[in-house]
Design a binder for these strands. Structure first.
Lengths: 115, 115
DNA sequence: TACAGCAGTTACCTGTTGGTAAGCAGTTAA
DNA sequence: TTAACTGCTTACCAACAGGTAACTGCTGTA
C-alpha cells in the first residue's frame, strides 16, 4: 500500500492559496495586463477592458496597489492627473501570466472541440 | 508619441479570462492538487484540505470534472466506492501550478517583509 | 452657456460563494 | 445495539463580488 506524501501536498497548498488571494477575481489580471501594456490613465484603462465599470476598476486598482503590483502617482495639476504604472516587483508575475495565457488558449480549444 | 499596441493587449485578455474562469475561486486548485497528489476518495480529499466543507467540495468536484481536469469513477460496490483522479489532459496545468507556487512563495515574503 | 472629459464616489440591488448544521442509505466494527 | 464510516444532499444564511446608474468638482472646448 502506497503512502501519500501529504507534506508535499500541504507545501503546495499554502503558496498557491497566497497567489490566488492576489490574482483572484474576474478583473485583477486583466487590469494589470492593461497597465503593463502601457495604459496609465484611469479612463484609458477603463476603455481598454470591455465591460468593466468605474466602480469595480477603482476598487481593484486599490487592491493591486496594496499588493505592490502597480504604483499610483498623483501629479499636482488641475484637474488632477493620476498615473498607474506596473512596478518592477510586479514583473515577477511574468511566468504566471505566460503560463495562464498558454494554458487558457489550449483549454479553450479543448472545451470547444468536445462541445 | 508612442502608440500602445492594443492588439497585443487584447490578445492576452481573452485566454487569461478563459483560464481564470476555470481556476477561479478559493478551492478549485487546492482540490485539484490534492487529487493530483494521490488523494482519490471524497473523504480523503476533504480531510486533506483544511476547512473545506462537504458541500463546497461536492460542488467544486463537479466543476473540475466538467472542465475535464478530473475524472469521477464509480465502482459497483456496497457501500458505493467513488474515485477521483487527475486526467492526462490536466497535466497541462503543470506550468500554471509551478508558476503560481513559485510566485506565491516569493510574494508572501515580499508582503511580510514590508508589513 | 452647454457639453465633454478627468478621476473617481455613492447608493442600490442581485447573484454567487461559501459557511453551518443536519440528514440519508448502506456497511462495518465494538 | 450503538457508533462510525462511506459519498454525498438539503436547508438556511451571511458575506462579498460585481452590475447599474447617477453624481461630484474641476477644466477645456464649442
Amino acid at each position: 500500500m502506497q503512502k501519500i506524501d501529504h507534506k508535499d501536498c500541504q507545501a503546495s497548498l499554502l503558496p498557491i492559496r497566497d497567489a490566488m488571494d492576489v490574482i483572484n477575481g474576474k478583473w485583477k489580471l486583466l487590469i494589470y495586463i492593461s497597465i503593463a501594456n502601457g495604459n496609465s490613465r484611469f479612463r484609458e484603462i477603463e476603455r481598454s477592458i470591455p465591460d468593466i465599470s468605474s466602480k469595480v476598476l477603482a476598487k481593484e486598482l486599490k487592491e493591486l496597489e496594496a499588493n505592490q503590483l502597480i504604483k499610483r502617482t498623483v501629479y499636482d495639476a488641475t484637474p488632477a492627473l493620476v498615473e498607474y504604472t506596473a512596478t518592477e516587483y510586479s514583473k515577477g508575475l511574468g511566468d504566471v501570466l505566460t503560463a495562464l495565457k498558454d494554458w487558457g488558449t489550449r483549454h479553450r480549444n479543448q472545451i470547444m472541440s468536445k462541445a
